[in-house]
Design a binder for these strands. Structure first.
Length: 876
DNA sequence: GAGTTTGAAACT
DNA sequence: CAGTTTCAAACTC
């Protein structure tokens, strides 16, 4: 990371009480845009992006599991709210689960917890900053606007760690100076941690930025020292396994009605963008769950300047797979405010303009349904790097208006809001506040919170995930939160929960263990298989679900006939597939026998096993490829230490562009009646940019979401290279089989809005407003659909162009466009990439990968689009 | 809210 | 790999 990156956390929140008018105003471009434009957290990258920041301080009461607006004195004194993070020392000793005594079940425990030596270092670091966002141009009511920014010692610590490079670079200036020319936040109070600092300065970013907090000597000092002393810092990431980015963004969503967000310091080096879920979320969604999206990318390369208009912030593209696909895809309930954590790490892999955006969004199925009729967002993740994209579970607020709801998406495309996950006490949320999004940013009202809690279901009222684990400490897949890669949060009623930032290490270790048993344990359960034509699912007529979406593993229902949420397929609003072992399947979304994919498979294989096997295999393959690729990339381009988990992580789905991940959870099944369930498909195709080893700027062509039927990266590639991407909205619309009214989305995010333009004005990548994830269509990524099987070709090259082998390109690349139209590969693009990347055949790339990572488990044979067996193994 | 049912996850 | 147990969500009352 040659260039210092500045992590900015933006929290945009709208006071719950904010009037629509105010909201609108807030959302209006000018204020935000101006504001953002002034902010340049990330040099070079951000200037063009606009975002609103709202800082909220939240106090998390473990006992009550609620975030309190204010901290009581005791808490403040402990200050160590943020002690949650474990420093390296502790980490070493904390391999095992935390002592039960640490459970925050009781306040006393909490105190102990806070007192924990580990945290002591950071005790001082915690500051509560109350910032007035008056600057927001009245975005927030003054009363409401008061935001407390809690600086989490832990976070600060992390950030410090991440920032070390910067520190070196900047020397003493680092702590206090505003690198970005942002005026330091005016700190009224802050002597002791726990105290709130009132930030009068309108510039939220400055307020948020650590740099600006020059007065927070203790905070930074302690943090810096700690960081210095300990190079390695445990980062709170739900991205278990993700490569360690140097910088970590943690954000937490505060459910606090007052928009209190506890924010940790902003990582100096990395951009930490937190989007306050709440902000996006509809008031009801208070759950602050954090999804980690790991981004490992060189800061410098992080985000090409986006010209996203309202795009709140730009995030460097994640090179690593940090994002828990499940969480994004599945877990993030629609309308739920989940916090997505993005880690920004240096990623050698990423080329300069490469970056990914992630964001959290809550899609409220209902909202979506109501608004868009029926459609699902599909993002294809083709690149590991793009895993981040999944984060894009854009927080689609259960916004009042469809457009509004969709607004958040836009940021994703360009700069999805990133949330940091913070310790309970300190949480910073940065929201990319799109002017339009503001409404959604509203935090849940108390009443809604109550309702949310009231419901026992895993999904809160807004469909936010929450768990009620009692025995597993939320460290097993039983826990929806854990399984989703998110931390348990306020809405959760879990007992003895370790799935919290404080126990990051434990969480990561546990995650690794689980992954060791099952590589795909955390992979999205719902996979989108692209179909050329609509399936005959009963629901499809209604557009409830994409015909191609299916449960990865399939269900095993015996009694529920797949008509109850016991059935994961049904719960995900997807039809059963041949991979299901259910009995008496009556899944309204599609009976397993009806699954289109099975047809061919059946014909060819004639057995369910085959089908099931195929599903798994494909997934496996994808995962494997991903792993290899990652390993390869990191090995060769090693920029940042990879966490074991990262290497082992099988966030394949996310990484794999081939697979379309459907967030099963994202769109809760409201009811059968709601045929237009909001199926959100994150379909990301990895663009070459992700992996571009050379750092060349690659055109980030937005992948297209295309219709489930159509969209192929192939076509996209061409388009991307040659022409501006289609209007995202269109893509979106096409993406969903449902009648989802994406027009709204389009309105929300004009086609231009979705697109990101490089600083030079060239279109870097295209984001669909709806899909948080930018759809990166790498030149290489082309989703090939097995026309017959309608599976995405797993073989698609996710590998960097450099790795590609031209030999098989033609074969592998063969793709069918939505319209069956054959798309030629983007030769130009490839050329740009360099000869090395000459049209690499998928196979070749695979080979390359495999060779590079011999240690990986054997790959399961893959069937290419033509059904030929993947030769990876043989090659190896 | 308590108890039951269900099926996935975990364990053996 | 199959069978059993454990677990938490979904469901029912």
């Amino acid at each position: 990371m040659d260039s210092p990156m500045e992590v900015t956390k933006f929290t945009t929140t709208t006071a719950a009480t904010t009037t629509a008018a105010s909201t609108t105003e807030v959302c209006s471009e000018s204020p935000v845009t101006n504001f953002i434009s002034n902010l340049s957290p990330i040099k070079n990258i951000r200037p063009q992006c606009s975002s609103l920041l709202l800082v909220e301080t939240t106090h998390y009461d473990y006992e009550s599991k609620k975030y309190d607006d204010s901290l009581d004195d005791s808490t403040k004194t402990t200050g160590c709210l943020f002690s949650g993070s474990i420093n390296q020392k502790d980490m070493d000793t904390t391999n095992s689960l935390p002592v039960p005594g640490h459970s925050y079940s009781s306040s006393g425990d909490v105190d102990q917890y806070l007192v924990d030596p580990v945290e002591v270092d950071h005790a001082n670091s915690a500051y509560s900053v109350s910032s007035k966002l008056e600057q927001s141009d009245g975005l927030l009511p003054s009363a409401e606007s008061k935001n407390d920014l809690m600086l989490d010692g832990n976070d600060a610590w992390r950030e410090v760690d991440a920032a070390l490079p910067f520190r070196e670079q900047f020397g003493d200036d680092f702590p206090g100076k505003s690198k970005f020319g942002v005026e330091p936040v005016k700190i009224v109070e802050g002597q002791k941690f726990g105290e709130s600092l009132s930030i009068d300065h309108p510039d939220i970013e400055s307020a948020l930025s650590v740099d600006n907090i020059s007065k927070e000597q203790q905070f930074e000092i302690s943090g810096l020292q700690a960081s210095q002393n300990q190079q390695s810092i445990s980062r709170r990431c739900l991205q278990f396994g993700e490569a360690q980015p140097k910088s970590t963004l943690s954000s937490t969503s505060s459910s606090n009605p007052r928009n209190n967000i506890t924010s940790t310091r902003q990582p100096l080096s990395a951009m930490q963008l937190e989007s306050s879920e709440a902000s996006y979320l509809d008031s009801s969604t208070t759950s602050s769950k954090k999804l980690l999206v790991g981004l490992s990318q060189p800061m410098s390369t992080m985000v090409p300047p986006c010209h996203c208009g309202n795009v709140p912030y730009i995030i460097s593209k994640p090179s690593g797979i940090g994002l828990h696909l499940n969480s994004f895809v599945n877990n993030v309930p629609v309308g739920c405010s989940a916090t997505v954590m993005m880690k920004l790490a240096d990623n050698s892999m990423g080329g300069p303009g490469i970056w990914s955006a992630s964001g959290t969004s809550c899609f409220s199925p209902e909202n979506i349904k109501s608004r868009s009729g029926s459609s699902s967002l599909v993002e294809k993740v083709s690149d590991i790097n793009e895993v981040m994209m999944f984060q894009s579970e854009a927080s689609i607020a259960a916004g009042s208006t469809p457009a509004e709801a969709l607004q958040p998406m836009k940021p994703f495309n360009t700069l999805p809001p990133i949330e940091h996950y913070a310790t309970p006490l300190s949480k910073i949320k940065v929201n990319v506040a799109h002017a339009h999004n503001f409404e959604e940013i509203k935090q849940p009202s108390p009443s809604k919170k109550r309702q949310m809690k009231k419901s026992s279901s895993t999904l809160d009222g807004d469909d936010c995930k929450r768990c009620n684990c009692k025995k597993t400490k939320c460290l097993k897949l039983y826990c929806d939160c854990f399984a989703a890669g998110i931390y348990c949060a306020e809405p959760c009623s879990c007992q003895g929960c370790f799935n919290r930032p404080e126990y990051e290490e434990t969480v990561l270790e546990t995650r690794q263990q689980i992954e060791s048993r099952n590589r795909l344990a955390f992979a999205p359960k719902i996979v989108q298989f692209v179909t050329e034509f609509p399936s005959n699912n009963a629901e499809e007529g209604n557009g409830s679900t994409p015909s191609s979406a299916r449960h990865k593993k399939g269900c095993n229902c015996k009694k529920s006939m797949c008509l109850k949420k016991y059935c994961e397929c049904y719960q995900a609003n997807v039809g059963c597939s041949s991979g299901c072992r259910c009995e008496g399947c009556k899944n309204v979304y599609g009976k397993k026998d009806e699954y289109g994919l099975s047809e061919e498979m059946m014909s060819n294989k004639g057995t369910e096993e085959r089908l099931a096997e195929t599903f798994d295999d494909r997934l496996e393959v994808v995962a494997t490829e991903q792993d290899f690729l990652l390993a390869e990339l990191y090995d060769s381009h090693y920029l940042t230490p990879l966490t074991p988990s990262f290497r082992g992580s099988k966030y394949l789905p996310s990484s794999e562009s081939d697979l379309t991940i459907l967030s099963s959870y994202a769109r809760p099944v409201r009811s059968l009646q709601n045929s237009d369930s909001n199926d959100i498909f994150l379909e990301t195709s990895k663009g070459t940019f992700d992996v571009n080893p050379y750092g060349q700027e690659t055109d980030y062509n937005s992948s297209l979401m295309g219709d489930r039927f159509s969209l192929r990266c192939d076509s996209l590639v061409d388009m991307s290279n040659l022409t501006p991407l289609p209007n995202p909205s269109m893509v979106m619309s096409s993406a969903s089989s449902k009648t989802m009214d994406w027009t709204n989305a389009s309105r929300l995010q004009p086609g231009t809005g979705s697109s990101c333009y490089s600083s030079d004005g060239s279109l870097r990548w295209h984001c669909s407003p709806i899909s948080p994830m930018t759809q990166l269509c790498g030149t290489k990524d082309h989703e090939r659909v097995n026309t017959d099987s309608r599976y995405y070709d797993i073989l698609e090259d996710d590998t960097p162009e450099i790795l590609k082998d031209a030999s098989t390109l033609n074969k592998s690349v063969k793709v069918s466009s939505p319209n069956q139209k054959r798309v030629s590969l983007p030769h130009t693009h490839m050329q740009e990439l360099g000869s090395s990347s000459s049209g690499g055949g998928l196979k070749s790339r695979r080979k390359f990968i495999l060779q590079a990572v011999p240690s990986f488990p054997p790959l399961t044979p893959c069937i290419d689009s033509k059904g030929s067996t993947n030769q990876k193994e043989s090659d190896v």
